[in-house]
Each structure stands twice: as structure tokens, then as C-alpha cells.
């Protein structure tokens, strides 16, 4: 069993850590939103990967199809994608309003103004 057998799961870990690191380390609010998205996408990949049945086809009715992938994780992730899109939209809307109120989307600038006021 080579490392590549679990390629998807390794990528999940890479994406998850890259996303979380971006959220934590970046002061730019847009970059934080991007990081959050990468982090969420890693979870989508995790769910899709666990639905795969080796040798299975797409879960459709047809001649001679007996082994097929589990469709449930796909459906769950459709829901999670919708939630993710809504979160991103709201986050970006907040960034627009923050920019109007503070004239900046850098966390350091904003904190300086908040502590000054």
C-alpha cells in the first residue's frame, strides 16, 4: 500500500492546513475569506472521497450495474456547498461595509482605528 493510495486524503490534509493557516496568518480580510473557502473545500473533498467504492460506477440505474459509489455524501456536500456560498457572500458583504466604514480591509489598520477612537 503506497502513499498514493490515499492521495485524496493527503490532499485533504494539505488543503485543510493551507486554508486554516491563511485564515490565521493573513491580516487582509479578503485573504481570510479565501483561506476559509480553501478550508471548506478540503472537507468537500473528504466527503466525496469517502463515497467512492473501488470498481464502482456512478450511482445510476442501468444494465449490468451492480457496484456503484455511495451517492449520499455527494448530496450532503451539495448542501454544504450551498452553505459555503452563503457564508462567503455574507463575509464579502461585511468586508464591503467594513471598507466603507474604516477605509481599509487590513486588520492592523482597522484595529488601530478602533483603539484610537
Amino acid at each position: 500500500m503506497g502513499i498514493l493510495d490515499h492521495f485524496n486524503y493527503w490532499m485533504v490534509i494539505v488543503l485543510m492546513m493551507a486554508g486554516l493557516y491563511t485564515v490565521i496568518s493573513r491580516g487582509n480580510l479578503i485573504k481570510q475569506v479565501v483561506g476559509l473557502n480553501v478550508f471548506q473545500v478540503s472537507v468537500f473533498v473528504l466527503y466525496i472521497s469517502m463515497g467512492k467504492v473501488s470498481g464502482g460506477t456512478a450511482p445510476i440505474l442501468g444494465e449490468g450495474i451492480t457496484v456503484y459509489s455511495n451517492p449520499l455524501p455527494h448530496v450532503l456536500i451539495l448542501t454544504a456547498i450551498v452553505v459555503g456560498v452563503a457564508t462567503t457572500a455574507l463575509a464579502l458583504a461585511l468586508v464591503v461595509r467594513i471598507r466603507k466604514a474604516y477605509g481599509s480591509i487590513e486588520e492592523d489598520d482597522i484595529l488601530k482605528q478602533e483603539n484610537g477612537s
Binding site: V23, L29, V43, Y47, M50, P73, L94, I98, A101, E114
Partner: peptide, 27 residues
């Protein structure tokens, strides 16, 4: 209060991380 915007944004980031952790857990 404009500080509510940054508070909401921070809550959004941490709340989403929390909810995503929960999804990983149930996954």
C-alpha cells in the same frame, strides 16, 4: 456602531471554522 461589523466578521470566521470542524467530525 462600525465596530459591530468587525465583530460580526470575526464571529463569522471563527463560527465557520467551528461549524466546519463539526462537519469533519460527523463525516
Amino acid at each position: 456602531d462600525r465596530r459591530a461589523l468587525t465583530a460580526a466578521f470575526r464571529y463569522l470566521i471563527l463560527g465557520t471554522v467551528g461549524a466546519t470542524f463539526y462537519v469533519i467530525g460527523i463525516g
